[in-house]
């Protein structure tokens, strides 16, 4: 019994050691969200789908590895990466200075502006004064939350939600006056659906790199520089061979990559 125990412990050491030191990236575990249509969502059949998911599959394949998708709550996704629950994050994570302190990023794989959404006709024209006192919904741990907190924190009531879908739900129920989110996510995930028919965009596109970064990239632990290179090569490859455009056209009728 004791021998068995010792050999089991030894075996588990060998196995975990294998995991830690295997750096040839035959298999890449990708952290995704699954509640951010059209980028990442779960189909009625229970499958993960969306732009992020398909990009993830294409990039990892182009990098010559196998993929394993791991879902994670968005507000815990960077800590989960650091805790090695997966090897990279492909979850519409914008490349910001704040996040760069914790993780490394690849080049961008898309870039879209952020916008306010309101009930149709609530305010006629956007201005900082016009939205004073409003209740604004954002997803927790996003660039959108940071932007609202830093720029409107004193003038509005901010409500933070775990997922973007919950923000849409409370917008619909009337608990929120406005929401602030990625324009593409809000269009496809809310405004174009039946639930979003009474709502509209208001105000300009927000793109200030201080909050919105330089586009959306893949996040990787800083130590794994070889994985950054491999995934960058993957992104470049799918951009060049038309795979990216094919995936883009499936979800959007415009250029989601930006300039």
């Amino acid at each position: 019994m004791k021998k068995l125990l010792i050999s089991l412990i030894a075996l588990s050491f060998i196995l975990t050691a294998g995991n830690v030191f295997a750096k040839d990236w035959k298999k890449i575990r990708v952290g995704v969200e699954g509640a951010y249509p059209p980028f990442s969502f779960v189909t009625p059949e229970g499958e993960l789908a969306g732009f992020d998911i398909e990009i993830a599959k294409a990039v990892v394949k182009a990098a010559g590895a196998e993929i394993e998708l791991v879902t994670s709550d968005y507000d815990g996704i960077i800590p989960a990466l650091l805790a090695k629950k997966f090897d990279c994050i492909i979850a519409s994570l914008s490349i910001t200075e704040k996040r760069k302190k914790k993780v490394a990023f690849t080049d961008k794989y898309y870039n879209t502006p952020a916008k306010f959404v309101q009930k149709k006709g609530m305010i006629a024209t956007y201005s900082k004064d016009a939205i004073k006192g409003k209740t604004i919904g954002v997803q927790r741990a996003t660039i959108h939350e940071d932007f609202i907190r830093d720029n409107f924190g004193k003038d509005v009531t901010i409500k933070s939600y775990g997922t973007q879908d919950e923000v849409y739900l409370d917008m619909q129920s009337g608990r929120l006056d406005m929401l602030f989110a990625d324009s593409v996510a809000a269009t496809e995930g809310f405004l174009m659906k039946a639930e979003g028919k009474n709502f509209e965009f208001i105000g300009p596109d927000f793109t200030d790199p201080k909050w919105f970064g330089t586009g959306v990239g893949i996040a990787i632990r800083k130590a794994d520089t070889d994985l950054v290179d491999a995934l960058n090569a993957g992104i470049a490859k799918i951009r060049a061979d038309g795979t990216y455009k094919k995936i883009q056209d499936k979800y959007f009728d415009f250029n989601v990559y930006g300039d």
Binding site: D75, P79, L82, R99, A141, E145, D146, Y161, D170
Partner: peptide, 22 residues
């Protein structure tokens, strides 16, 4: 904290999501 109230757990989530220090 899951329905937007900042209680003790909500505060922890807020700090975690700001500093990524769970």
């Amino acid at each position: 904290s899951v329905i937007t109230i900042i209680d003790i757990t909500g505060a922890a989530r807020k700090i975690n999501s700001t500093y990524y220090s769970p």
